[in-house]
Amino acid sequence: MKFSLGPNLYFWPKQQVFDFYQQAAESDVEHVYLGETVCSKRRELKLDDYLTIAHMLREAGKKVTLSTMTLLEAPAELRELGKYCDNGEFDVEANDVSAIGILQEQGLNFTAGPAINIYNHQSLRRLIDMGMTRWVAPFELSRDWLQDILQQNLINTVRDCFEVEVFSFGHMPLAWSGRCFTARSENRPKDQCELCCIKYPEGREVKSQEGQQVFVLNGIQTQSGTRYNLINQLPSMKDLVDIVRISPQPEGTFDWLGRFRNNVDGEQPVKLNSKESNGYWLQLAGLATA
């Protein structure tokens, strides 16, 4: 079982990003995803900066994948997407079918990100035939649902052609909008957001009127209020999941990576706190814990 660092979903100052990936280079993580997947206005790092980091990580022995934007609306965003796909060196994670289209036309292999809606073997097989070599399952797929897909004949006959990755730690991106909710929370129009999301390195908490944390605002993305944590489910991923995804946090990411690695066989379980959940994997509501 291998581990990955998913794309950083938050907006951090450039130096913090460089420091984070320096730590990643020194860690034992196998895969790293780099790139802006949430908002095209966030330009602390440009593609060239990500490529600099990518080279540094590759030197350190990591497998690097460039992650692309999820909600693309403007022609300029598509042009930027084209540059990611044309990088010539690194694999690309497609988070919108527009990226799959570009990579397919160029005959390049790709990773299908979690925002691509694949819920059945028939659709999965279509993507494999288009060149998909890694599949990051949608967040809401349970272990049983994933198994249902993978054991179909259409898939198990080509199971060695692709890897399966599961988002296992961090606040889950639950929705994408044309509206920026962080700007709205500061009473700013989206056009004049002044990139205020940089003030919230792990998003803004949204609570119900009785204090239950329900969501986290991260720009145009709405995340789960709970931190998803499948550390205790790692044994149930054996023979099903190839790569376990850890989503970058401002603090403690690499400590958690160590804890995950120590519990691959269930030898060092961790008790989840009240702000964590594991429901989706267990076929429950996403915010539930069992």
């Binding site: 999820t70 909600l71 925002a115 809606n117 819920y119 967040f139 809401e140 889950m172 639950l174 929705a175 994408w176 909008s177 044309g178 509206r179 329900v214 969501f215 709405t222 789960s224 429901g279 076929q283 429950l284 509501a285 996403g286 915010l287 539930a288």
Partner: peptide, 21 residues
């Protein structure tokens, strides 16, 4: 719908029942 349709798991997160499926 204020979220991109087909890309919203808010309801499934709270109820376990997915609008997508």
């Amino acid at each position: 719908c204020i979220m991109a349709e087909g890309r919203c798991y808010l309801s499934s997160y709270l109820t376990g029942e997915s609008p997508n499926t």
